[in-house]
Amino acid sequence: MRRSPLLPIFLTVFVDVLGLTLVLPLLPFYAEHFGASEIVVGVLAASYAVCQLVSGPILGRISDRVGRKPTLLASQAGTFLGFLVIGSASSLSMLFVGRIIDGLTAGNLTIAQAYISDVTRPEERTRAFGLIGIAFGSGFLLGPAITGELASRFGYGAPAYGAAVLSLTSIFLTATLLPAKPIVPAAPPEAAAAEPARASAIGRGDAFRRFFDRPLPRRRLLEFFAFTLSFSTLIGGLALFLERRFAFGVRETGYLYAFSGLVGGSIQGGAIGRLAKRFGEERLALIGFGTMVIGYGLLGVAYALPTLLVLVGIGAFGSAVVRPAVTTLLTKSVGRDEQGAALGVSQSLASLSQIVGPIGAGWLIEHRALSAYGLMAAGFAAVGVLLGLQKLPVGEPVES
């Protein structure tokens, strides 16, 4: 049997995410170790996103032109170097340098999504994008728990060095397993006929204007932005929230991240394909946004561990179904040759949300507004609900 074309990209994304999740719950405690305030912790997270905001569309377009594999390798090399700097950090400024290096080359997820679009048909895409969700869920299950143990036993630098080793492994997997030119399913004749016009459009104007001028891609991008704003706000302040409300350290925080990853990975590992077939991507995204509103919005009333676990589980379900559903809807709303650029724009919006979310969360937590922190994350998810309830403009084509 021929090996699935999604296997190598799943392996590389899984190893990348595992490395990321080794560092993600660590950074707030690492920064506080060097005297950072809550708002500075948010700025540290935002520094990565500011750089990614610039690099995302550029890397997406480069991958459309020169190929997914070389662009992904360059991106992974930057991640590897950034982790090394963080692991050897002796000051807060070195943490910033490590995150900036990583952010300037941060295109791994965008390129992986574009690769999946290359090798799958539209009707298969939600399940295929669920593979990235499985990678995220598995990474969040294993990485944070490992981080807690490594940091408590060997110091804050140890998880970052572990992440660097995983990043190097990811580079090796990409170099050896990922085909240089993926096998692309044949496009329908009408889509093939439209390719030259779309390619010409790609060469003109700004990527944001090109997609936001069209009602359907604009709606999908705004839904993705609402999701990433909500999720980034939650993740950007979660460690600080847990530290202040429940007196959690890096080990306990790591285990809670792991629980969230278990829920998300379970959904995307087996249920996401069936859910997409039963409800369709639009309704599935709406359900996911609704559960995010509930899970995040009620965090302020969580004072006992069982309540916290229930709410985190609800929110994890929501984010687990929204990401693949909305990403699928986005790729279906544009031409095949535009998918890399569209996903690059979505990554830029994600980067913008990763600036606003952590800084906003840090500011609220610094002012002891813990309930408002959860409500802020829920409010952004509620925008996704409102977008999902809107009807498409009359005459607007449906995704195919």
Rank of each mutant, 00 (worst) to 15 (best):
V40I: 15
A89E: 07
V40E: 12
G42Q: 06
I355W: 01
L242R: 06
A160Q: 12
F140M: 14
S167I: 06
L27W: 02
E190K: 05
F289I: 11
K69F: 03
K181R: 15
A271H: 09
G374S: 05
E149W: 15
R204Y: 08
I267Q: 03
E243V: 01
F212C: 03
A304P: 03
L311I: 09
F241N: 04
A160E: 11
Y303W: 15
F80M: 14
V394Y: 08
T120R: 14
I134M: 15
S55Y: 01
T291Y: 08
F136W: 15
L7E: 12
G288F: 04
F279W: 15
S63N: 03
H367L: 12
G254R: 09
A361R: 02
A77S: 14
A194W: 02
G87C: 10
L168A: 15
L11T: 05
N108E: 06
R220D: 02
A175K: 06
T331N: 13
Y156L: 14
G205R: 08
G357S: 12
N108Q: 06
F208E: 00
A45S: 14
F80E: 07
L222F: 08
R198W: 10
P188Y: 02
A372I: 04
F34W: 11
L238E: 13
Y48D: 04
G155I: 03
L142Y: 10
L44C: 05
A128F: 09
C51Q: 01
G87I: 02
R125P: 09
D118V: 05
I116N: 04
P358M: 09
A194K: 13
A158W: 07
P25V: 13
T176H: 14
G157V: 12
G362P: 04
D64M: 07
G42C: 13
I171H: 02
L364N: 07
S232H: 13
L305Q: 09
P5I: 12
L309G: 11
D16H: 13
P8I: 06
A320Q: 10
T120D: 04
Q347F: 04
A186G: 04
K181F: 03
A186W: 03
G388D: 11
A77D: 02
P28A: 04
P358D: 11
S55P: 01
V119R: 01
I58P: 04
